[in-house]
Write a protein that binds this DNA or RNA. Structure first.
Lengths: 141, 141
DNA sequence: AAATATATAGTCAATTAAAGTCAAAGAAGG
DNA sequence: CCTTCTTTGACTTTAATTGACTATATATTT
């Protein structure tokens, strides 16, 4: 099976990310599109389908002059990662059971990703606990 | 990665501020513009977009001869209930503006209530910061 | 003291340079 | 076929930069 353009862009970006020390790159969408000879929105498509929070990536961007797209792969310690995955999975389950709405799931997963990425480890544990409490409240009934 | 002029001016000012003891600097707008080879209003732009109250800065200025712009970084006091109330109010506003859905507001307020009730004060500050980031993400117009 | 000149800083709108959105058309796989 | 994933492009939104014009201090002259 032949690789799609999207696949090739994905691989290209992942190689770039892994090569950096901080697992973070900044690209210009239009420039990358030029490199691959495609429309800029193709890049947006690749990023939104292959660099999701669930897969461990964070993206930020800025429009306008000197705009950019920044992609960060965050790496957590094993234990933290397990905790994060557990929460994410739990949220997915709650979604399945319709215990929470899609938009609630979205904002919670977003919060988890932000928090795990930016919080000092000793605080993550506590946030983690709180999130479990909140989810537990929504689970029982 | 090319930084915009605005980014460079921002960084320059932040370094100056952090170097001082009282986290406060006074500059001359036109002089700084000269340093960076840009128009003075560029400096105004940088200050108004990057040194906002939200980001923890205060600015004052005076026109005319011996004019200046003073930028002060203030420490966010993490008084426990004030932080909680601020977040709650913010969520209400986001609801009004329909930036988030009712169910998202509900789960966030629930989370905040749980978290502030059960978290030791020193952790609250961090959770508070993270929630602000998440909410800021959802605050678009 | 009042009037005038000079030196700053602020405001606002125009221009330009990105990135995002969305839906429709096309391709691949089952 | 039918479904799902990919590709494209027209249109929207946002950020940066600039400059002409305005407002307000201070300094100088009358």
């Amino acid at each position: 099976m032949k690789k799609s353009l999207a696949d090739r862009i994905e691989q290209y970006l992942k190689v770039l990310i892994e090569r950096t020390d901080d697992k973070q790159i900044e690209i210009q969408r239009s420039e990358l599109a030029e490199t691959f000879g495609c429309v800029p929105s193709q890049v947006t498509y690749v990023i939104s389908t292959r660099f999701t929070e669930f897969e461990g990536y964070l993206t930020e961007s800025r429009r306008g002059g000197k705009g950019f797209v920044r992609i960060t792969r965050y790496q957590l310690e094993d234990e933290e990662n397990a905790g994060r995955n557990e929460l994410m999975t739990w949220i997915d389950e709650l979604l399945q059971e319709k215990a929470i709405t899609a938009s609630q799931g979205e904002i919670l997963q977003h919060l988890i990703t932000c928090a795990f990425k930016n919080m000092p480890p000793e605080y993550r544990k506590h946030l983690f606990k709180q999130l479990r409490v909140v989810l537990a409240d929504y689970t029982r009934y």
